[in-house]
Structures are given as C-alpha cells and as structure tokens.
Design a protein around this nucleic acid. Sequence first.
RNA 1: GCUCCCUUCGUCUAGAGGCCUAGGACAUAGCCCUCUCAAGGCUGUAACACGGGUUCGAAUCCCGUAGGGAGCGCCA
Length: 494
Amino acid sequence: MGRESLSICSPRGNRCSMAAAMTVTRFAPSPTGMLHIGGARTALFSWLYARHRAGRFILRIEDTDRERSTAEAVGVILDGMQWLGLAADEGPYYQTQRFLRYREAVSALLASGLAYRCYCSKEELERMRAEQIARKEKPRYDGRCRDRAAPRAGIDPVVRFRNPLDGEVIVDDLVHGRVVFQNRELDDLIIARSDGTPTYNFCVVVDDMDMRITHVIRGDDHLNNTPRQINMLRALGGEPPAYAHLPMILGADGAKLSKRHGAVSVLQYREEGYLPEALLNYLARLGWSHGDQELFTLEELVAAFDIRDVNKSAAAFNPDKLLWVNQQHLMRAPLARLAPLLGAQLARLGIECRDDPLLEGVAALQRERARTMREMAEASRYFFLPRVELEEKAARKHLGPEGAAALARVRERLQSLPVWSAEPIHRALAELAAELGAGLGTVAQPLRVAVSGGAVSPPIDATVALIGRERVLDRIDRALEWTQRAGERGGQSP
RNA sequence: GCUCCCUUCGUCUAGAGGCCUAGGACAUAGCCCUCUCAAGGCUGUAACACGGGUUCGAAUCCCGUAGGGAGCGCCA
C-alpha cells in the first residue's frame, strides 16, 4: 500500500517535495439540480480526507452541459456547502470558463494522432447501436472513422479519443482494491461535440491534471469511467491520481434514493431543524466507521477519517437514525447556538420572539425531548405565547373537580412564594402533595395543563419558573375558569 | 445483452483464519428511574445470501450459483 504517492514523486523516486506531496482532493458537482444527500456525502469524504492529510480541497463546478446547468443550481450548491461548513480551499472553478484550455488539449491530441475527427451522423450512430443491441452485443462505437483521411462534406465532425485497442488498464482503487479493465471493452469516446464544446469525461481529465488532484474521491457510478479517463490522462502526458470510489446511498426502502428521503436539497434539512454537524456525522457513518463510535464532532471526524476504512457496499439512508444523531448533537450543542435557531423556527410558526431572553432556557429544557429544532419549536409555543388554549382531552382528564381543588391550592402557594425559581417551586409542590397525601403528579398534572395547555412539558418546576409568576398565576386562573364552566356545562359532578 | 461492482441482525456497521456462544448503534419489545414527555440505565427479539472447496480450524481465503447495483449518450 501507499502507492498512491508514486505518481507525484520525483522521477528518481527518492524524495517528494513538500508541494508535490500535498494531498489535493476535489468535489465536482454538476449544477443540474440540488446538492442532495449523496452529493453532500461525496463532498464530505473529499473534504475530510483533505483535512485529515492537511491538504487542499477544491470545488469545481462541472457546467459543460449548458442546456441543463443553471445559475440557480450553482447558488444552491454553494449555499449547501456553506451551511454544511465544507469550505473549499480553492475555487469554485467553472468548466465553462476553461473552454480555451480544453480546446487546446483537444488540438494537441488531434495533432499527435491520439484523437481523430468522426463524421458519423447521429442517425448512423443510432443505427449502429440498434444493430449491436439486436445482436446482443454491448453498444459501442466501432471506430469506422479512425482511419478516415478526408472530411465529409456538410457534416461538422466530433472529435473522438483514440482508445488503445488492446492491453488493460489497472485501477488500484482505494476502496475497491485492484480493478482490471480490458481496453477492448472500451470504445472511442467523444471528447468534443460537433459544435466544438468539450464533453464531461475529457474536461474531468484535463482539470484533474491541471489542478494537480492527487485523490479523486467520487461515487462508484464513475468506476466504469475511470479506465477511459486514465487512458486520456496518459495520452495528455499526465500520471493518474489515486482513485477512491464511494458506495452509493440508497433510499430507506433499499431502492434508489428518492424524493421521499434524501433526494432533496441539503438545505431542506436546515429548514427542518437539523444541525449541519449532525447531518455530517450521520453521513460520515454511511459507508464509513471507526470502531463502535457513533457520535463524532467535526474535529473527531477529521482526526479519525481514513479513506481505507470506507466500505464497498451501498448503504440505505435511515431517517430514524439521523433523527437520533441530531438529537444527540442538540444535547451537546452550546445553548447560545440553539437559541437563535429556536427563535427562527418559532418565527416560522408565527411566533415572533427573536431576542427573547427565554430562548436559551427553553432550549435547555427541550433539547432532550426534541429531535429537531422544528420539533422543539412546535413543543415550545406556550413559553412564548401570552396565553394558552387548553387541550380538551388533557383538561378533562386533569382539571376535574379534584384537579381544580389541587390547582387552587397550588395557586396560593405559588403566589406567596418568596423566591421564584425551580427549587423552591419544587419544594412547594412537594409539600402540598404531601399535605394532600398524594403523589407529586396529583398537583403537577393540573398545573402542567394550566400552564402549557397540554399534558406534556419539561419538569413542571423548571417550566413554571421559566414562564414567570405573573403568567403562571394568570394561566391558573383561566384554567380554574374553564373548570367552572365545564362543571356548569356538565351539570352532574362525579 | 455485454463489462464492472456489491452481498454480516429490518437499517448503519464491528469483524483482516482460532479472541465469534458473531460485538456496537438506530428501530422494536419489556423492565428500572419518574410529576407528564423525554433523556438515561438494564434486559430481550434479530444477521454471516446459497453451494462447493482450501485448512486441524472460515463470517474471514479460493471457485461457482443466486440476488442487487452501476456503466454501455454529441448527459454529467
């Protein structure tokens, strides 16, 4: 092992210069859609590897397909990378801005005979393909223009790479191990379209060479492209980088990644209240592991990550586990970080509480009972609303005559409490329960319903303390009113 | 169809010939803690795709089979 440094060592092979030895990785998305879970994971692994090796990470936008590439998609990718915190050391580079360079490279291959012009029409190629399929052969270009000397009138030619006819290409993949391809299985692919624009496989090769990429880390759907790229790279006088082909990510159903889960913009996860470091943590554990460790900080990931520990097989995206990982990160995050996120999520619910001093306190109480910031906000409305609406079911259960009686006495106690904080509140409630010869729940549940509107909240002492005496007493009064009305409505009492 | 890749609990994975009666995590079931809900703790259910070899010994090595995936574009 350790052969991935071979190509960047000096010809004498005895010493690598510092600059040459530096690891350079890249993430090269095409801006034809969102930055989704799969792309984010690829970016993460490239980024982690560069960071782990104290190298550089380059962002390159592969926008040679002008039909499908959009500026919006570029923006979404950039935003997504930024939110995730996967900062590039270089770039973004845009392939559309390097067309001159590609043209030059095509010309060089043409001049040296390693590429040739092909005058076959699209119809001709389609016919060829149909015939091959009919014969149960692999559809491929048969090289009929390889030795054509004269142009064909009226046809703008494409340029094809002259792939070697025999021999083999060996890919020593960092995750798959040695993979051998026969050149006879490969055909002469188009490197420049009839309008002169270069194609993907060619641009990748030129760019990876020019940018001195040492490690190409990408999805294993590209494994089959690799031998062609190596052949082209060599034709251009380059030396192949190391390759690492990552397994794909599948949807939760084990099928292809679908819109249902994963195939949406990573920014969707921000909106739903996931922490970027949690998403990264989860993604890292898809196809990679470090012993039994499940939870990682970014720093721990950088320190522990090695491409050699990456699995070969595809992994299914598991939303439940992501939720768990997110909660674990919520429980560990600084409250000062959570507070504004909670404020933003509440704002989405129509509750304006931007700089509410309660935010941090609420986050502290709720973070172990919410899996996302969205959930936290949804469960925390009553902390910020002036009044609460009682849930019918909870009120009927806990605010009957007995509950109301307990609640009335709770009110007295709380009103006269000298110090308004969780401990004295807890003591007061405990004493009252003891007086009533009942458990804490007997006083806590009616109070909980009065104060939160429902039967679920963080510990009642802390909740009550946070909401404040004035509001708490007011809510108790309103709850007692409700009880009275219910009694009148119901007529007979138990 | 051809080429290439992949295959351990439902899911993510540990496992590099004896430490495996196959470990951890999510999910799931039960119990504990408990003012509700959580969080946390404990316990349980649950896997080496199949068949041949090699070896004293295989989840681990080899060969087949089956299943899944990717690629085969003037898309990336």
